[in-house]
Every structure is written in C-alpha cells, then in structure tokens.
Design a protein around this nucleic acid. Structure first.
Lengths: 247, 247
DNA sequence: CAGTGGTCTAGACCACGAA
DNA sequence: TCGTGGTCTAGACCACTGT
C-alpha cells in the first residue's frame, strides 16, 4: 500500500475526505452512524472515531451528540480585514447573515479595565455578538467600550450599526490606530459550544484595540473565529526605514 | 465531585496542568511513563493518553515517541510583528536562537508561480528556514523570491541577513506594501514533525506577500508558527473614511 | 423509548529511541 | 535488547436527541 495507509484511521479519514471534497457526500448530509461506519471499514469504533476526529479538526465534519456526524457546509473562506475591522464587502454581502447582539453595562473587571485603561469597576459597555450564517455559527465577539462612545441605535434592527456589529466592525468613532494581536489556539469550552466546533478544533483569536490620536482607547474587542472558516488579512503600507539598520 | 470531574480524562488533565503550571513539575522534566501514570490514576492507558492529548493541545506537554512525555518550556509568547516581518527586538535578542536556512533554486510550481506572479517553471529562489530556541523548534518558514532580488551573503554565518531569515524578516529590497493573510489550522504532518508538536496542535499560518510601488512581487513567504508560542501583532494607522459611509 | 455519539476498559501488537 | 509511546480491538456503560 502507499504511505497514505500508514494507519487505518488516516486511511479512513482520507477516504471520507475524498468523498466529501469531491461532492460524493454533500454538505449538510448526515454520515452513517459510527457503528455502521466501523462495520463498513472493518475497524473498531474507537479507530473510526479517531478518523472522524481528524476530519473534525479539519472542519469537514461536525459532530452532534445524540444525532450524528454531519458534513459541514462548503469551506468558503470568510475574510476578516484587519485594520478595517469588518468583513469585506464581498463576503459582507452574504444573504443569510444573522446577528445576535446583546448589550450590557458592566463594572470593569481587571482584564477589561487593563485593556481599556480605565479604573477597575468603572462602567463599561459590553457587546456580545454572535453571527450566524443560516443555521451554523460564524464567529463570536465580545466588545468593550467606554459608555459615552457608544453610538445611538446600535441595537435597532436594520441599523447599519447593528449590521456592523455582526460583522465585527468597529462601532465607535474614527480611530487613529488599530492594533490587533492574533493567536491560534484551541477553543475554550464556551467557544466550542457557541460555535458548534469540537474542542479539538482551532480558533483564530483576535484582540483588537482601537485608539484615537490622543492615545485614548476607543474599543477593545476579543474575536473568536473558527480557524477553518476564516482568513484574516492585514496590509501594511509605507514601510519605514527601520529594516535598513540591519545591513 | 465538582464539575471539573465531568470526565476522568479532564480530571487527570486538570491535575497534571495544576502540577505543571504551579511548578511542581518543572519545564523540561520527563513525566512518568504512560503505564505508570495510568496505574497511579487508576485508569486505562487509553484514558490517560486522552488526558495527555488535552495538555498537548494546550502546548504544555511534548510527546516524543520512544522516549516519553516532556513538560514544555514556559509559555512565553513570542511576538511576530506584522508588516515589519521580524520578531521584535525584545524577543529577537534571545540568546539561544539557532537558525537553519537552506537555499535552493527551483522551477516555480503552480502555487509559487501564482504567488509571485511569474510564469510556471521560471527559476525562483527558495529558502527553507527553521528556527530553534535551544533544543526546541520555534517556527518554520518557506520564502520564495525572484532570484535577482536575493541579497548577497544570505547564507553566510553571522550575516545580518541570515539572522533576519531566522527571524522571518523580509530579505529583499524595501517593499511599498506587505499583505499578510493569517489563518489558524492544524499542522500538516511535515510541520508537526518539524516543529515537534502533535497533529492535534495548532499552527498560526501566515502567508506574506511583499510588493514594491509598481506592484511587482518581491517576496512570498509561508510561515508556520506554533499557535501556543506565538502572537502576531498588526497595527493599522490613519484610517480612511470608508467606515463613515455606513452611517 | 430507540438510536446516536461520548467515555472508558483491559488488554494486544507495532514503531521508535537509547543503550 | 528493553522501555517507551502509537495504534487498535471488542466490548461495556453513560449522556444526549428525537419520537
């Protein structure tokens, strides 16, 4: 056999991946039950589950306890445009985009206070955003702002602000600079359940801080985007001469 | 029991995580063998391995086939500075940074040709960079450039260029713009072995394209950075007025 | 309730690393 | 060669979802 057959589980994963990516199993379809698949491939259920875990990590399969394993909808990559902070117009024009925004005012806990550079316990506006595309969750955002900078009508349905929130755009006034810190990590349990991804999956985590020209912090946001669905694009113009110093 | 005891493997992972993060097990130390740990926790080896897989996903434990499970060195986050393309001076000053750079000239395959916007099959300089910190691998880069833009002395030991390569800096001439596309994904098998991380782990993958003012592509790089070790920072200045259109 | 995935066991055998 | 982790089995039982 070729080296793709290094292990049963990889061979099974390869076979299923082939069937999924070539359209022989359609997005949204339910796979046969794990016991059935284990019978078909002549392996134990543990091995079959291991194969499915590989595909789940790749974002091809969604496991739902008590229901079954489902093929996830096509892996169209959604663009997050750094520095702008909004999904680009091309993807933002998606038809079935639903947004859940929940606003609350909290007493700043230490981490938020540090991000916003306000005293601990001072009032802070918090937005919890969950965007869906059809039935499947898209991305998760928690945005904190000084209360006086929150624009009116953010929660109004049909409001441009509300749409912007769902697309993870900046809500406050025009910033002078945006600093985004990006990391890749496994999801927290809350993220895993909210985004319906396995804990073996991957999230692209973006901590975004917008400041005005005086250095005042306008917004601090934590975004959690399923890694298999999102690309983030950052563009830097007009490089300075710092590099030259090396030569 | 409390809810941390939802499952044996989480309980075990929690216990080991506690011992590691509180310093009761020191970085670099080898854990007892899996059979010993399974005995100590009174679980099967499969369950114990499952617990270790959780910690491996968190980057706390490094598994080495035939040797044992090792506690990884402290989770100091390394900064990748976007748009600049080099680790920042603070971390770049690390003492034990070793760099392996391998240069070759290849006939551009389709993907590289597309990135560089050159004809398929035309000669392209390829750099494979692997940076280590002490014994453990850091990050992986594959950089492609038009051959005429490669500066002299890149492979010379002690050269500033060589150091820059290991720090994933831009090698070519000063670009007018750098566009970086970031995604989070599981490692490819090659990356997993080169970076000594499990395939259940996470990499921060950066595709970086540098262009000059005429739009010519100076460099195309693919970086693979262990997600648990790296943060990438991107800063955007001088926002345009595009956002205002929404209001 | 039946059917599904989630967890776990107590083994077996294979592949790797170091002596 | 020996001890290690890696893969796999053939079950058992629990937890969740639908009818």
């Amino acid at each position: 056999m070729n080296d793709a057959t290094r292990s049963r589980r990889h061979a099974i994963a390869d076979d299923l991946r082939q069937r999924i990516t070539t359209g022989r199993i359609l997005p949204g379809a339910r796979l046969p039950s794990e016991t059935d698949l284990a019978d078909r491939y002549q392996v134990s259920t543990a091995t079959l589950r291991n194969a499915l875990a590989i595909l789940q990590g790749e974002g091809l399969v969604e496991k739902i306890h008590g229901k079954g394993n489902y093929v996830r909808s096509p892996r169209r990559k959604i663009m997050y445009v750094g520095g702008w902070g909004i999904l680009d117009p091309w993807t933002a024009a998606e038809p079935a985009l639903r947004v859940t925004v929940r606003r609350s005012t909290i007493q700043a806990p230490v981490d938020v206070a540090a991000s916003l550079k306000v005293p601990v316990g001072s009032p802070v506006a918090e937005f919890n955003c969950l965007s869906h595309e059809g039935d499947s969750p898209h991305g998760l955002a928690r945005i904190h702002m000084p209360p006086d900078l929150v624009p009116a009508g953010v929660l109004d349905n049909g409001s441009a602000w509300r749409e912007a929130a769902g697309r993870f755009a900046l809500l406050g006034p025009q910033p002078a600079a945006v600093r985004e810190t990006v990391c890749a990590r496994p999801p927290t349990p809350e993220e895993a359940s909210a985004l319906r991804i396995g804990s073996a999956s991957v999230v692209l985590s973006i901590h975004r801080i917008a400041t005005d020209s005086a250095g005042r912090i306008l917004e601090a946001a934590h975004l959690a985007l399923p890694g298999d669905r999102f690309n983030a694009v950052f563009t830097t113009h007009h490089m300075t001469d710092e590099r030259q110093a090396r030569a």
